[in-house]
């Protein structure tokens, strides 16, 4: 058994240490807000925070999480930056189909926590690994700027 901390709560995990964190979150802990997209860290939809850093949970073996705090889309609203990003997303109606948005919000919140006033270059660099097939990129960029200002 491995113990991991997710959204401030400690969970005992029965999965093998090499199991991807994403599978544990969704299948074992029932935290299905984090989505499965490509499984090879090419789409960003499974992004969570590990000690505040945006990480693709499909690539992270649960055994390597250790003592670090995992935050998912279910918990990010309880952080100041996360709440601001979520509000900006609602204010600007960023979402279209929504499937990629948990990942987009997690990536945006990690960016703003590290860089409170990112320029377009910094936004491009941090968000390029998060795909959106509906093409909401323009609204995502606006959402990040809106959250930075609020």
């Amino acid at each position: 058994m491995t113990a991991i901390t997710v959204n401030g709560k400690i969970y005992e995990v029965a999965s093998e240490a090499r199991t991807p964190l994403l599978w544990v979150l969704r299948d074992e802990l029932g935290l299905t807000g984090t989505k499965f997209g490509c499984g090879i860290a090419q789409c960003g939809v499974c992004t969570v925070h590990v000690d505040g850093v945006a990480v693709r949970s499909c690539q992270m073996p649960v055994g390597t999480v250790g003592q670090r705090a995992v935050t998912t889309i279910e918990g990010v609203g309880s952080t100041t930056v996360g709440a601001r990003v979520q509000k900006a997303w609602l204010d600007l109606e960023v979402v279209q189909c929504g499937y990629c948005q948990p990942g987009q919000i997690m990536a945006a919140a990690a960016l703003l926590a590290a860089n409170p006033d990112p320029d377009d270059n910094a936004i491009d660099a941090a968000m390029s690994g998060n795909l959106c097939r509906c093409g909401t990129y323009v609204r995502i960029r606006e959402g990040i700027k809106h959250a930075a200002r609020s």
Binding site: A41, V53, R56, Q59, M60, P61, D124, A125, S128, G129
Partner: peptide, 24 residues
Amino acid sequence: KRIFEGNCASCHAWTGAGAAREEA
């Protein structure tokens, strides 16, 4: 840089230290 941002940084991280696993 653009290709690295979109395809590589997710696993390799902007520090090149590897984001999710040491193999990266």
